[in-house]
């Protein structure tokens, strides 16, 4: 019995359009134009308890809309959805009491209050018993190393500190399901690792089901065994990360920073796909040439200042997925 099941979700928004210029502004007084945006066009998937799923796609693909529907804030135009045996938007209050949500861009804590007071307020809001709250609080404070700044008002925290507090805040009421929306955006490297490690432990040791929406492929690679790709309101892919990659491309990219601008770069096993001044982007197939070997060749032949290897960004993968699907 899946813990989360979405079936054929559809949602269309109407966005007002405005003509440019003064004439348009005056005309807009009398008649308002609007266009339709199909955010979700038949989205279906299901999750078992304890899964850690990445939910990815380009901007505007429908990720936030899906999360809003799953969390009960938004009512879809049509389709079915069950979370923990409830329809999210129909029984809002009991439903949201069992989920935790973290928005990376926006905090749920009170701006002017010390962190600890925000936590206490949430305890009262979620009606958590004192005993359960103490247990959860102690554990979260220890795992996320919050003790040093519990008395600091949220507005004075750094982004990394704030994100850790937001994670704790979302888990004080011990929900079995956690939605993470861009949790590592803007974070420094150390904070990112802390957050990732925490989410991994939460999932492995506590069995908390996690849906992670992100643009950071490193997050996905570090945490998710299963990845759902949404594009243009449709599910494009649903399976393991390796399968996705293998399905689209095995390609990897070598980014090289040269010391001089004018040098032409060639290699039999790599293709130059982008060139911006002294920066060259080479695409290669790691099954045909080992990255180390390619790096060695390039470094030996050209005046290299710096280089690094990366996976093609998610937008690239999705774009190819689109091309594949003939969109």
């Amino acid at each position: 019995m899946p813990q989360i099941a979405a079936e054929n979700l559809r949602k269309t928004f109407h966005v007002a359009e405005r003509e440019a210029g003064m004439v348009g502004a005056v005309r807009g007084l009398v008649r308002r134009r609007s266009r339709e945006v199909r955010a979700l066009d038949g989205v279906s998937f299901s999750l078992e308890a304890g899964e850690l799923v990445g939910y990815i796609g380009p901007n505007g693909a429908g990720k936030s809309t899906t999360i809003k529907i799953l969390s009960g804030i938004l009512v879809p135009d049509s389709g079915d959805c069950r979370v923990l045996d409830r329809v999210p938007w129909k029984d809002r209050v009991p439903h949201v009491a069992r989920i935790g949500v973290v928005f990376g861009q926006r905090t749920q804590l009170w701006w002017d209050l010390p962190v600890i007071e925000s936590f206490q307020l949430l305890r009262d809001i979620y009606r958590v018993s004192e005993k359960a709250y103490q247990a959860a609080f102690e554990e979260l404070a220890a795992l996320l190393e919050l003790r040093p700044f519990l008395d600091v008002p949220v507005r004075q925290l750094s982004l990394g500190q704030r994100m850790r507090c937001d994670l704790a805040a979302a888990l004080l009421h011990a929900p079995p399901i956690l939605f993470l929306d861009e949790p590592t955006i803007g974070l420094d490297a150390v904070s990112k690792l802390t957050v990732r490690e925490f989410v991994r432990r939460l999932n492995r040791e506590r069995g908390v089901t996690v849906i992670l929406t992100t643009h950071d492929m490193d997050d996905i690679e570090a945490l998710c065994t299963r990845v759902i790709v949404i594009g243009d309101g449709h599910i494009l892919s649903d399976g393991s990360l390796e399968a996705l990659r293998a399905r689209v491309t095995r390609e990897r990219w070598l980014i090289v920073d040269l010391t001089e601008d004018a040098v032409e770069v060639h290699d039999p096993d790599a293709e130059v796909i982008r060139r911006e001044g002294p920066q060259v982007c080479l695409a290669f197939d790691p099954t045909r040439v080992a990255p180390a070997e390619l790096i060695g060749r390039i470094a030996a032949r050209y005046p290299v200042r710096d280089l690094f290897v990366q996976n093609p960004p998610i937008e690239e993968i999705i774009a190819r997925l689109y091309r594949e699907n003939g969109r």
Partner: peptide, 12 residues
């Protein structure tokens, strides 16, 4: 001023 005016004229 013009830009702000156009923006505010939307407020029907």
């Amino acid at each position: 001023a013009g830009a702000r005016l156009r923006a505010l004229l939307q407020y029907r």
